[in-house]
Design a protein around this nucleic acid. Structure first.
Length: 258
DNA sequence: ATGGCTGAGCTACTCAGA
């Protein structure tokens, strides 16, 4: 089973690129972030033509997450955590895989910049609330998959120039500690688990030729609960969509489980 | 180098992203 996580930066502006990708990669499940549209304007019919059902937690202009799947998803939940600002940042659902019931958790973590504002506090509070809830979920189901745009640079190797980001909301130690706290509940960062030293990125800024210079960062992650580690077949950052005309600033990360 | 570029909503410009 092939599962993809991709911050598409507007599902409607990106639809042609997304369809090109789907035809080539043929994933079973897509976890989208930053769809930037309300539920009623989501392109359900277009995905349906390619045999995908869409489960959407949208928002006007900003944020928004969706699960787009060829496989039946049950128990869709859009209220896993309490969000004071009522932003659409998390959608979960259950999928049967072999003898396991896997809970898919698709997240778009707040950016948190600038750090001396309430935006940073919102990110910290969001993560604290998220970790508390994941701990509870884990006690009920040991098969969890958390994927999405975490807006966290886990380690120095995960960005082209760490010094530029050590005081940024994506790289601050306080935030990276939250990520470690999450891992310590019983998860592996699948990319780093498989690739111990490799330096690859999932995001490149639109500004000043960041893509051409490979000034990127690894902020989109697949976390698998330890119970599912034996099912990993492969993990891949697919850079092709970032190289296209009118790309998202993020590129898809692909997980295959067996 | 708080710049650079892109999308939504809207129709001039702000807000947000990372």
């Amino acid at each position: 089973m092939k599962i993809v996580s991709w911050n598409v930066n507007s599902v409607r502006a990106r639809i042609e690129n997304i369809l090109d990708y789907i035809k080539e990669a043929n994933p079973d499940i897509l976890l989208f972030q930053e769809i930037k549209t309300q539920d009623e304007n989501f392109p359900y019919d277009i995905f349906k033509k390619y045999n995908y059902d869409s489960y959407v937690f949208g928002q006007k202009s900003y944020n928004g997450v969706a699960i787009v799947s060829k496989i039946k998803i049950k128990n869709i939940n859009k209220n896993l955590i309490k969000d004071n600002l009522k932003q659409s940042r998390i959608i979960t659902g259950e999928v049967k895989f072999k003898n396991k019931k896997i809970e898919l958790i698709n997240i778009y973590v707040p950016n948190g910049n600038p750090v001396d504002t309430e935006k940073y506090e919102y990110k910290k509070n969001w993560l604290t609330s998220f970790i508390r809830n994941i701990k509870k979920r884990l006690s009920e189901n040991s098969n969890l998959l958390i994927a999405g745009d975490y807006n966290i640079i886990p380690e120095e190797i995960d960005v082209y120039d760490f010094k530029k980001y050590e005081n940024d909301a994506l790289g601050k130690l306080e935030i990276r500690k939250k990520y470690r706290e999450l891992l310590n509940l019983g998860f592996k960062d699948v990319y780093r688990f498989i690739n111990k030293k490799k330096q690859e990125y999932t995001f490149w800024d639109y500004f000043s030729g960041s893509w051409q210079k490979n000034y990127g960062m690894r902020i989109d992650h697949f976390l698998l609960s330890n119970n599912l580690i034996e099912n990993i077949s492969s993990i891949n950052i697919n850079k092709k969509p970032r190289s296209k005309i009118k790309p998202s600033d993020h590129t898809p990360i692909e997980l295959e489980i067996r």
